[in-house]
Structure formats: C-alpha cells, structure tokens
Amino acid sequence: MPAASAAGARAQDRPATALRRSRLRALRRANWAGWLMVAPALLVYVIFVLQPLVITVQYSLYRWDGIGASQWVGLQNYVTVLTDQNFIQILTNAFQLILFFCVISVGLGLVVASLIRRVVTGRVGTAARTVLFLPQVIPLVAAGIAWSWVLALSGVVNQILGAIGLGGITQAWLGDFGTALPAVGLIGVWVLLGLCTVLLLTGMGKIDPALYESARIDGAGPVQEFWSITVPSLRNEIAVCITVTAIAALASFDIVYISTGGGPGLATMVPGLEIYQLAFVGQQVGLASALAVVLVLLVLIVVLPIQRMTGGEPL
C-alpha cells in the first residue's frame, strides 16, 4: 500500500495494535515467568554441565599437568587418542561392553518381564521384581568388591564349577585375559537387568489387553504375541533401556575400577577409567580431556540414532 494511506491505516488500526501489544506483553510476562521457573535449574545446568564441557574442550587443546603452565598443542591430543593402539583398544573394550550391558540386559529384560507378567504373578512376581531391582540400590563399589570375591580363584563360581565336576575350567575369571572383559560385562548385566525389567514391566502394564485377546482369537501363540504385540508396543521403553544401558557401557567406571582396575593388561580398561588415570594419576590433563571429548561424541553418535530408529521421544 502506498505511503499516503499508511497514516490513516495506522490510525484505524490503533485498537488492534493495542490489543496485539497487550497480548505481546502478556506473552512476554509469561516468558519471563517461564524463564524464572527454569532459572535455578538452568543455572545449575550451565555451571555444572555446560561450563565443564566447554572447559574440557579447552583443556584438550593443551599439554597441561593441572597446575603449572600449559602449552598449546592444537589437535595433537586428539591425534594421539585416535591413533594410539592402546586408546583404540580401550575404545573397543567400551563397545564390547555394549554387547553385555545393552544387548543382553535389554534382551533378557524383555524375556524376564514377560515371564513375570504371564507366569510368575502375585507375591512371587513382586519378590522377583525386588530381587532383580536390588542391584540398583546397592552401591556399585560394594557390588564390585563382592563380585571380585565371587569370581576369584577360590570364589563361589569356581566352587560350584568344582562341585559339578568342572574343576578343570576354574580360573581367576577377572585375572585372565580371555575372560576378564566378559566377566565385567556380566557384572554389568547383573546391575542393569533389574532396571530394564522394571521399566519394561511398567510399559507392558499400559498395553491394551484387548490386543492380546484378539491375537489369541486369531490363533497366535505366546511367542507370536511377544513379537507382534509386546515388542512393538514397548518401543519407547526399549529405546529408554537401550539408551541408558549403552551410555552405562560407554561411560562405565566404578564396576571396572573396583573389580579389575582395568587389568589384566588393558583387557578391561575403559575410557572412563583411563580418563581418570590420565588426569589424576598421570597429570596429563590435556590428553585426558581429549579422550573425554571423544567419549562424549561417541555416546552421542551411539545414542542419537537409537532415538531416531525407534522414533521414541527424547528421554
């Protein structure tokens, strides 16, 4: 519209503009209220999550002992992390742990949850649920110590094996190169199985029983029901389980620190423990930070596609 009529139009529009303004003001007020509500959490998030993250990226570009003067090394620390044989083995270990922490925990969790739901109902089911969830309540340090006794040469596992005539295969499970990582993985399964089971059980409670009924009328067996109804209906819960367990595997620290300390050799060394050792024992803060950044990226690379694939809402 030409400029001439603009003034008139403005005059006519006054009420409308006022209305829009007041609505905007209300909106702004609401926004401020919203920000105010979020502020404490946001502040904590910025101080304890974002800031350390940025500082870690900063440290990763230097060679620094944590106290004295630092030396700019650019991306050298990242080159070391991504090319050094040991670091590659350590990262590989973390992915092998995903197999245990994630695949076995979630897979077994599905089976156990179905069993509890269909077969072991009532008091026994509640008891089973409690027992399975217990590892979540026990401090992992205590659990790690207990497991290192269970898996020792004179531990319960070997005693049982000896009693059933398998004395020939007894060994120090956490001290042998071939069995240490799987043994640590099984401890992880023990810890995470309960969490997965309870999460999945809750999800199963929300499935419409009519679906099962109609499936049964159509002649589906328990296995078919499981694959055609239970698993697809639990898509979101499974996504949560996979995300949590995958991160637990990649970022594992306490179980490994207590049960094996990363040994023998580097057989059970994981990025979390290596970061700790580099930074606080070896005073190589830069290298440790670079590994930490790589670990964060790996976690994101693993977790984001899981979110996409399952189409699940973010946690």
Partner: peptide
Amino acid sequence: MLSFASATFRRRPPGRHGTIP
C-alpha cells in the same frame, strides 16, 4: 553414576528462545 549418566546427554528443548543459551 553408572546407570543414570544419561541425564547429562538429554536433548535440549527446541530453541524458541535460543538467545540466552
């Protein structure tokens, strides 16, 4: 720490008010 580290990596809400962050 083992199982609840996920909180750190939650997706941030979509940035309608992206200026402050």
